[in-house]
């Protein structure tokens, strides 16, 4: 069963290879954009320097953009308004449902496909940041601490990123378009609430949390990420068994 799931995931990824490249390119650009913001945050936190940077933008990247690394967000369905009407993910699933493919194989292939894309994009994002950050950054934040920071956000993004799989294949083209807008509104509200409660940005809070609680926070978010995948795969299975493909 896993063999067939992997075969299907691999085939689908190969069909979307240009989309993977484009999304990877966009991810690298976002990473380049994130580096000065993150560096400025840390310098302000630990060196009491006052620099021009935008804490809201940095939070928005980590809270809102990193979960989208689970999807090929610079690829056909996400860029075309025709998606609303044509529902390309639904069409793909309709073809799969017409073939002798078990539901378990289908669900596992969705999760595998999502994980491969997510791991590629997230690895590229954090590797570029790691490589591009100046040495001065690592005087304040050790490399191991940065790794824990990245893994914490990786776990967070996995929880929300797995929802993308459900949105793509469990809903229709209209929801695929509306969901990111709703998600953005929620993220902005969460960001405003956090900065009012803690009087600091979410990324800043996460750096402090990682430094204080070390591995616990990393393990907790990774476990949450895995649980998110399991929950979404169950929800998607239930949905696909009752969904119409018309």
């Amino acid at each position: 069963m896993w063999k067939d799931s992997w075969w299907l995931a691999k085939k689908e990824l190969s069909f979307q290879f240009p989309g993977i490249l484009l999304t990877l390119l966009a991810t690298i650009i976002i990473a380049f954009f994130t580096v000065p913001q993150l560096d400025a945050l840390v310098r302000e936190m630990y060196s009491n320097e006052t620099l021009y940077w935008n804490p809201f933008l940095l939070d928005l990247i980590f809270l809102g953009v990193t979960p989208s690394f689970s999807a090929l967000f610079v690829w056909g369905p996400y860029l075309s308004l025709r998606t609303i009407k044509e529902d390309p993910f639904g069409k793909r699933m309709a073809l799969y449902r017409s073939l002798p493919i078990s539901m378990d194989v289908l669900i596992r292939s969705r999760i595998l496909s999502m994980l491969v894309i997510f791991i590629i994009m997230s690895s590229a994002f954090y590797t570029i940041i790691f490589l591009m950050l100046p040495d001065s950054f690592f005087y304040n934040v050790e490399a191991s601490q940065f790794l824990r920071f990245a893994l914490t956000w990786f776990g967070y993004a996995l929880v929300l990123g797995s929802v993308n799989t459900y949105i793509e294949f469990g809903t229709n083209g209209r929801v695929l378009y509306i969901f990111p807008l709703l998600f953005l509104i929620v993220i902005v509200l969460v960001r405003v609430a956090c900065s009012n409660i803690w009087n600091m940005g979410v990324v800043e809070a996460s750096i402090l949390l990682v430094s204080r609680y070390s591995n616990i926070i990393v393990i907790a978010t990774i476990i949450l990420g895995v649980l998110g995948c399991v929950t979404i795969s169950r929800m998607l299975k239930k949905r696909l068994l009752t969904r119409d493909f018309i």
Binding site: R97, S98, R243, D244, I246
Partner: peptide, 9 residues
């Protein structure tokens, strides 16, 4: 036909 194929429930 879609109902027969399980594409419509």
């Amino acid at each position: 036909f879609k109902t027969l194929m399980g594409l419509a429930q």
